[in-house]
């Protein structure tokens, strides 16, 4: 834990600094190059020309978890892979975020009933920030998930003590 992190009371200085740090964090969410199944194809489409994820500063896909902020679990997580997903999540430096993309990663999806080898939702392995519905989700849906994640980061406390009312310093996204 940082020397000042979560130790200060709320005042105009800490809220401004928190705003700045949150702005930086939400403006440069670098995802990890990491795809598990067919949702990954849609994830690639988000990075490609038509739905350009780089517009939000989130287009710098990093190949190593050490430099990534966001893990987009794109696809079916089976038990063999769950161990690796967990390890990759652990190897990311905090603050780290997870988007569960698609029905399989959210809750097992079509494999819920008979998929003996499928984890029924990646949230049983790693904490998930945003769930994106769809099978697979459209690229627009993933972009909306990214914006939801940005809203979530925007509300988080950095220097301030946690547990303040949510949205204490909520700045809406520019339209």
């Amino acid at each position: 834990m940082g020397l000042l992190e979560h130790r200060l009371d709320e005042n105009v200085l800490t809220t401004r600094i928190d705003w700045l740090i949150n702005w930086a964090r939400l403006s440069s969410i670098w995802p990890m190059t990491f795809g598990l199944a067919c949702c990954a194809i849609e994830m690639m489409a988000v990075g490609a020309a038509h739905h350009d994820m780089d517009r939000f500063g989130a287009g710098a896909f990093r190949a190593t978890p050490r430099q990534a902020d966001l893990m987009i679990v794109a696809g079916t997580v089976n038990f063999k892979m769950a161990e690796r997903v967990k390890r990759l999540y652990e190897q990311m430096p905090s603050p780290k975020y997870v988007i569960a993309m698609g029905a399989c990663a959210t809750g097992g999806g079509p494999y819920y009933k008979y998929g003996y080898n499928v984890v029924k939702g990646v949230d049983r392995v790693v904490p998930v920030d945003v769930y994106v519905a769809g099978c697979p989700p459209r690229p627009e849906a993933l972009l909306e998930g990214l914006m939801k994640l940005q809203d979530k980061i925007r509300r988080s406390a950095v220097l301030r003590k946690p547990g303040l009312p949510e949205g204490a310093l909520f700045v809406p996204a520019p339209s």
Partner: peptide
């Protein structure tokens, strides 16, 4: 170091 979190786990160190 003033701000950045530090939540190391044994897995993270591998």
């Amino acid at each position: 170091a003033l701000v950045r979190p530090s939540l190391p786990t044994p897995e993270q160190k591998t």
